[in-house]
């Protein structure tokens, strides 16, 4: 436990020394603040932020995560020569990156919200929750990729392709499926498809908080009914949890066996 904390602490120092994280905070801060200043109530700002959150966070988390792991290669090898458990090392690296990235997002988006609109319910919290979860999910995926591929270029390539797949192409595939199966009742299928991609899940959870959920007709009504009740909320949170945990766990298993 002690080693874990020490590793996380070292990570924080390392992150703060690079200017990456500061730039990342500033971007969110300026963006949120700007959206408020250019008119718009908290609902509009949340909606505008939503697309940025769903687009930028996965990209930054996965690319930065992979690069970070490759860059730490020598550091990892050094520590592994010491009497330190692999579990503590891997968890330390993961938490040492995902926690600061989440915190930075929460500060960058949260602070302008608080001084422009005060504490708010609903949409705002779901937005923060989705952003944080996506950070954890995509950092985990990044680590899994980095552990798996020895070559740095290959790893980063795979990371970018995977992001492209989940952020954009997945929705295209959904659209293809929905139109191919046009003749069938698709409500349940859409519900399942929405859970198989953390970005879609985040988007739908956020959208359901707004008036425009009513636009979504029967599909929306089904989503509202499902995600609106307790079981649905629990399932949604559980799914997000699985999405956070699964890549980390797989990465961890690969890390335990990896021959450095």
């Amino acid at each position: 436990m002690n080693t874990l904390l020490k590793i996380i602490k070292y990570q924080l120092h390392d992150l703060l020394r690079g200017k990456w994280v500061l730039v990342y905070t500033a971007v969110f801060f300026v963006l949120t603040d700007g959206l408020f200043r250019f008119g718009g109530d908290s609902d509009q700002v949340s909606l505008s932020l939503m697309n940025i959150v769903l687009f930028v966070i996965p990209l930054v988390s996965i690319v930065f995560g992979t690069m970070f792991f490759y860059n730490s290669r020598e550091f990892i090898e050094l520590l592994l020569s010491q009497p330190i458990s692999r579990a503590a090392l891997f968890l330390g690296l993961y938490l040492g990156l995902s926690l600061p990235l989440s915190a930075v997002f929460l500060v960058g988006v949260g602070v302008p919200f608080i001084y422009h609109a005060g504490f708010l319910g609903g949409a705002y919290w779901i937005l923060l929750l989705a952003g944080t979860s996506l950070t954890c999910v995509f950092t985990g995926i990044a680590f899994l990729i980095a552990v798996h591929y020895e070559q740095r270029v290959k790893g980063i390539g795979v990371a970018i392709v995977l992001w492209l797949l989940l952020a954009i192409l997945y929705d295209g595939i959904i659209m293809f499926i929905l139109f191919a199966l046009e003749e069938y009742p698709l409500e349940k299928l859409t519900l399942i498809l929405s859970m198989l991609n953390p970005i879609d899940l985040g988007r739908i959870l956020i959208l359901l908080q707004f008036d425009i959920a009513a636009l979504m007709g029967y599909t929306g009504a089904l989503f509202t009914k499902f995600y609106g009740n307790h079981i649905g909320t629990v399932i949604a949170l559980l799914t997000l949890g699985i999405w956070c945990a699964a890549p980390v766990w797989l990465g961890f298993r690969a890390f335990l066996k990896k021959d450095f």
């Binding site: 954009i168 997945y170 659209m175 139109f179 929405s194 879609d200 029967y218």
Partner: peptide, 20 residues
Amino acid sequence: LMIERNEPALMLMRSIFVEL
């Protein structure tokens, strides 16, 4: 126009793919 034909496609509302 798409959701007029296929209502469940509304689940993609505001997704980046649709905006593109």
